[in-house]
Amino acid sequence: MSTCTALIIPANPAEPARLETIDAGLQSLQTLVGGNIEAVSAQDWHFYLNEEGKILGLAPNRRACELVLEETGGLFDIYCGDVVALGETDDGGEGNVPEHLIATAQRLFGLQQPTA
């Protein structure tokens, strides 16, 4: 079991994007995205979303698309449903979302900060 700081980006733009400490295990990730997970990798971070998001008619996640475009310079898919972004450890495990990704998300669409 791995506890990490994640960037949660709901597909619903009325719900704030937020930083949250999560259990980064499979069941927790599936609960957060509402189904089986699909991973999308980019540099030193990756995110998970519902692998059937398009089939189920989940709403496009415009903020996740905007973040990917800003961070990578390209957008190769439309991501549907809620997104959970994490970083990677040196051995390839789940890690805290990188600071540069948090800064980009804050600049693009703001983040709800965790409460103590």
Rank of each mutant, 00 (worst) to 15 (best):
F76L: 12
A42T: 00
V84W: 00
L86N: 07
G81S: 08
N50G: 05
F76W: 13
A85S: 04
L58R: 13
W45D: 00
L86H: 06
D91Q: 12
A42W: 03
P60V: 04
G92R: 10
A64F: 14
N61E: 07
L86Q: 07
F47K: 01
F76G: 10
G93Y: 09
H46C: 03
E88K: 15
D90F: 11
N50L: 04
S41T: 00
G74D: 09
I55G: 09
R63A: 12
N50H: 09
I78G: 06
D91S: 08
H46S: 02
L56A: 07
G87I: 03
T72L: 11
G95V: 09
G92I: 10
C80V: 00
E71T: 07
I55S: 13
K54P: 00
L58A: 09
T72Q: 12
G53H: 07
L69E: 15
L56S: 05
C80I: 02
A59P: 07
E71M: 14
K54N: 02
F76S: 13
G57E: 10
W45Y: 05
A59F: 12
E66G: 06
L69N: 14
G57M: 09
L56H: 06
D82H: 06
G92H: 14
T89C: 06
D82K: 02
T72C: 09
G73D: 08
D91C: 06
G95H: 11
Y48R: 02
G74P: 02
R63F: 13
A64M: 15
D82G: 06
E94C: 08
E71H: 08
R62H: 13
L58H: 15
F47T: 00
G57V: 05
K54C: 00
